[in-house]
């Protein structure tokens, strides 16, 4: 690269670093993912002290620092607490491929859970069609297409 200012050549070297990983889900996340994959069900975990139902299920409650052990089946409906319409071709870090903009995604608190799940919203990506507090329902992939990760959720559909 020639600098316009003093016409001195400055070299910069492009490089791509492609790093493969393989993450262990652990016992709790594995149970959550297998229930989702095999039975299409959502399970949260409840802390025996503070009673918060946490997603994803995890072995220790961060607040109380005790072992979580009460598995709670959640419904597949919830309430939208935040959303956006994305106009940038965001790369999906798990696939390396971009999500096609514009698309809506949001944060949904499943009934019976103290946590939220972020996912695509199956609505026309215009702000007039989306509002905080609207009821949403999980749409899953077909059983034979589910593999046991959060991608088994297709999106949230508005409850009409």
């Amino acid at each position: 690269m020639k600098s316009a200012k003093d016409n001195v050549e400055l070299i910069s070297i492009p490089m791509v670093v492609d790093v493969p990983y393989r993450f262990a889900a652990g016992k709790y996340m594995t149970r959550f993912l297998t229930e989702l994959r095999d039975n299409g069900k959502f399970y949260g975990i409840r802390c025996p002290l503070c009673n918060r139902v946490q997603l994803p299920p995890r072995i220790v409650c961060a607040v109380c620092h005790v072992k979580n052990s009460d598995w709670i089946e959640l419904g597949n409906e919830g309430t939208l607490v935040g959303f956006t319409i994305m106009y940038l071709p965001l790369t999906d870090p798990t696939t390396g491929k971009p999500h096609e903009p514009p698309f809506a995604y949001g944060s949904v608190r499943l009934d019976g859970s103290d946590s939220v799940i972020d996912h695509f919203l199956n609505v026309e990506p215009v702000v007039e069609h989306i509002r905080i507090g609207m009821r949403m329902k999980v749409a899953l992939k077909e059983r034979e297409d589910r593999v046991g990760d959060l991608g088994d959720i297709l999106h949230f559909d508005p409850v009409t």
């Binding site: 990983y21 996340m29 965001l90 790369t91 999906d92 995604y105 799940i117 972020d118 695509f120 990760d149």
Partner: peptide
């Protein structure tokens, strides 16, 4: 988190 929500992360 790699297993919970990373698909929509990135910005």
């Amino acid at each position: 988190h790699p297993l919970f929500g990373r698909s929509l992360a990135g910005a």
